[in-house]
Design a protein around this nucleic acid. Structure first.
Lengths: 206, 206, 206, 206
DNA sequence: TATGAATGAGGATTCATTCAT
DNA sequence: TATGAATGAATCCTCATTCAT
């Protein structure tokens, strides 16, 4: 199952992603995937062990993409914690709208299956860790205040997902981002710092 | 399809909920559901039209239960918006811990089906509407401030669910409730009211 | 896989036997077997695990039949060793003409497979043991002389089989039986006894 | 399909013989044959028309070898019919021990094929004819007595094979040869000649 | 000549659904 | 009403064969 033509593998993955996004697993026919990808049915079995492997590969690769995108974006421009968190949320929402089924999968891989699920778990943890590290950064710098950063790190993707349950069409991305940011900012806001700033402001205006 | 033995119907629903929560739709065999429920395969078709109907019924009945509980609690004691919201969240988390299977199923219906899934959708909307009405109540009374109450209403169950995907054992209910409440309070806090109250406080303390 | 309707199971087995006799394994379609047996394709899978299991079941049951027939015939009428051997050979040839593919299988089950192959080996050994016991009986009674009865016991089915390789049509059963008997009699003839009998005869005729 | 590299062709044949002997036709994959033979899958199609042709070629070449060896040995030293028969049997057993795969394949061709299996059949007939001619020679010279030489000619390879199905290790070649010879001698013995010789002997000894 | 990636016809197998009991 | 044996449409998957390189 060594990959032979990475280009072809990607083409299949892409095509399958579209179909799995549009229909549930058991309604997606491999014959359709093959045709849509412009390859023979047998070819699928050269690049993927079976239907399930193809499905999980779609999800894994999508997920890996998201994590990679977020990481790249964070490394790109060194910003403050809040800007980082905003960027992460924007990236996540954007990705979620483009790949609604990938995000749906964040619920965990449905069943302990073929694919090395340790690989999976680690990828999921990467996302969580990424968000958590941003939060902890903010706490360290005094900008954020959070008693349970590890819970908050799970909340954020959960907020994105909660809206997509009804399909992305139900709300536009911009609004969603804004509202999530509102909640996250409010929840992480350092009251003490805020209070002392207000104090200063009041003092200065006198 | 007049329901004949409500006890048996519930037993089937319960069993199916467990299985559908543990495995994806296409991996759940009706023969397994029947066996696990201690009925014959044919019996399933007396109580449910087909596999998909069974699936949707699981969702519907689960949500109906949750909604009913929440409504009862809210009617029980007439309180202010924040107390109501707190009660709703407590109820929801409690339910999630008691019925992890049902809550796990709070995901997209696997496919836009031939079958009329309106019934199930409407139950889901009821939950949303319930939460939303609490929020709108709070806005009306000036206690809350929220630009998109309909989004917030989706966020709340999403927060519960986001933590449970890794299994309820990963966090205790009390902590989860606290952290959700923290975020919800922060997000809904009426800054103006808060500010004016602080103003009053400061004025009064002088 | 508990047998449900033994009658139906036998019908399938019979039908499959005919088809497997007429065509090699991979040319026999289960759809054809099902149709010929007057059952649905799925029904085959109620009674047999899969195609291979069906195939091996055909062979095993055929083989068991042969052994049983031979045993019954031998028990029926208590005769001398030579008569027994003749009866066994007649039975075997007759069976071979009726079930050419079963006999072909005496070569050992093609590969260590699904079916409990210990069951198989024991059945094959039964046939061998049956013949061998007849021979040993003859040796004990002084009618036969054989240095390697265990080899001879293998020779006899081998003789039957050697002719069937070209298909039963190549020679008629009667002639085959005669010729096999000729060889077996000659090979097992007790020369000493013969000689002494001849001696007696000559003596008596003087 | 001009043969290009006889060495490679033989390597393929050898490998295929092993695999076809070890597994039934439909379980032998050409990909496995190719790999085991150390050639590409496509190469098989340069040397053989298709899978069936490969199979038949294995049989043909195996038999051709055996026939050739036997013929060479018979031509080598001009002897009497019994010595020839003995030599043939020794050669056959020896070959069987050296090439268990080929001998194992001395079974019915799996199916009456599209492909012309006449070639292979004719090789098999050559073996038979060779043995038969020895027998007929013996009959002509009065040394043998046989009502069905064509059957006997089939019996002899059948005797060899019957023992080898359980693996050659089960019996040593020398014993097998002896026992086969015993049966063949006994079966072909000219009773009249024997009788008259005995008569002579008795007469002479008086 | 040699290769092995690609192919797709062919067929085994599954499982939701039916229905005689 | 309850059952589970029977069904066969639906579909995954295999593997002999081809052909561009």
């Amino acid at each position: 199952m060594q990959v032979l033509d990475e280009q072809k593998r990607l083409k299949i993955l892409e095509t399958a992603a579209e179909l799995f996004a549009a229909h549930p697993f058991h309604k997606v026919l491999l014959s359709e995937v093959a045709e849509a990808a412009g390859v023979g049915k047998g070819t699928l079995y050269i690049y993927f062990k079976n239907k399930e492997d193809l499905y999980l590969s779609v999800l894994y690769s999508g997920f890996a993409q998201l994590v990679e995108r977020m990481q790249r974006r964070l490394n790109q421009n060194q910003l403050g914690p809040m800007e980082n968190l905003e960027a992460a949320i924007r990236e996540m929402v954007q990705f979620a709208y483009q790949n609604p089924h990938i995000f749906e999968l964040m619920r965990t891989v449905p069943y302990r299956s073929v694919i090395d699920s340790a690989q999976w778990d680690s990828k999921r943890n990467e996302l969580r860790a990424l968000i958590e590290s941003i939060i902890r950064g903010g706490i360290a710098s005094g900008e954020f205040s959070d008693t349970y950063p590890e819970l908050t790190a799970r909340f954020i993707p959960g907020l994105v997902r909660s809206v997509l349950v009804d399909g992305p069409q139900s709300i536009d991305a911009r609004t969603l981002i804004e509202h999530i940011l509102h909640f996250v900012r409010a929840g992480l806001m350092n009251r003490n710092k805020l209070a002392s700033e207000q104090q200063e402001t009041r003092s200065g205006s006198r």
